[in-house]
Amino acid sequence: MTHQTQAPEARRPDRAALAIAVAIAIVAAIITYSTATATGGSATRIGPSVFPYTIAGGLFILAVWTAFEAVRGDFPEREEQQVGPVIWIVAGLVAQMLLLHITGFAIATGLLFAATARGFGKGPLWMTVPLGIILSFIIWVIFAKGLQLSLPAGPLERLI
């Protein structure tokens, strides 16, 4: 029996990873530009602008690293993306943004919770919607009443 060794297949650069690297680099550039052109601030050597510059620097390093790995083809093969779960999660985010100031924090975030659970294949909506609203209401009580932070209040929150 003869053993034939096959030459390892050269992987092409990962275009999706290169696109992600470019997006990260653009975010780093936007943060750097925004921080550099901001008016006001502190006259001290280490002031509030140090943190955005640090974050931008970290993002730039990640962008270079991601691009390097993409060119080498070191990313593992990805599974095919399922569109359904992504649509559920994005729809939940959109619903929360649209309903936050109308229905309040608890209801809007409860709907986001339910849509995200549905996207991950967990529980029926008749169970996850009330559960999400209850958990979100508890979070609202902790933040709004306990920590005195301002979160959008709707009819449910106005009961307290």
Rank of each mutant, 00 (worst) to 15 (best):
T5A: 05
E9Q: 14
R11S: 12
R11H: 13
R12P: 09
R15E: 10
A23C: 03
V27T: 08
A29D: 11
I30Y: 08
I31W: 03
I31C: 04
Y33S: 05
S34I: 01
T35R: 00
A36H: 11
T37P: 00
T39V: 12
T39Q: 07
S42K: 06
G47Y: 07
G47F: 12
S49I: 14
S49H: 07
V50S: 11
V50L: 13
F51L: 15
P52T: 12
A56D: 00
A56G: 08
G57I: 10
I61H: 09
A63M: 08
T66M: 10
T66W: 02
E69T: 09
R72M: 12
G73Q: 04
F75G: 13
E79W: 08
Q82F: 07
V83Y: 14
G84A: 09
V86S: 04
I87L: 15
G92E: 09
L93Y: 05
A95S: 13
A95H: 06
L98I: 09
L100T: 01
I102Y: 15
T103S: 01
G104M: 14
G104E: 04
A106C: 07
I107G: 02
L112W: 06
F113Q: 10
A115R: 00
A115M: 13
A117W: 08
A117N: 03
G119D: 09
F120R: 01
G121T: 05
P124A: 08
L125A: 15
L125E: 10
L125I: 15
L125T: 04
M127A: 15
T128Q: 04
V129L: 04
S136V: 05
I142G: 02
F143E: 03
K145L: 07
Q148W: 04
L149T: 01
L151G: 01
A153F: 05
G154N: 11
P155Q: 01
E157S: 07
E157W: 08
I160K: 04
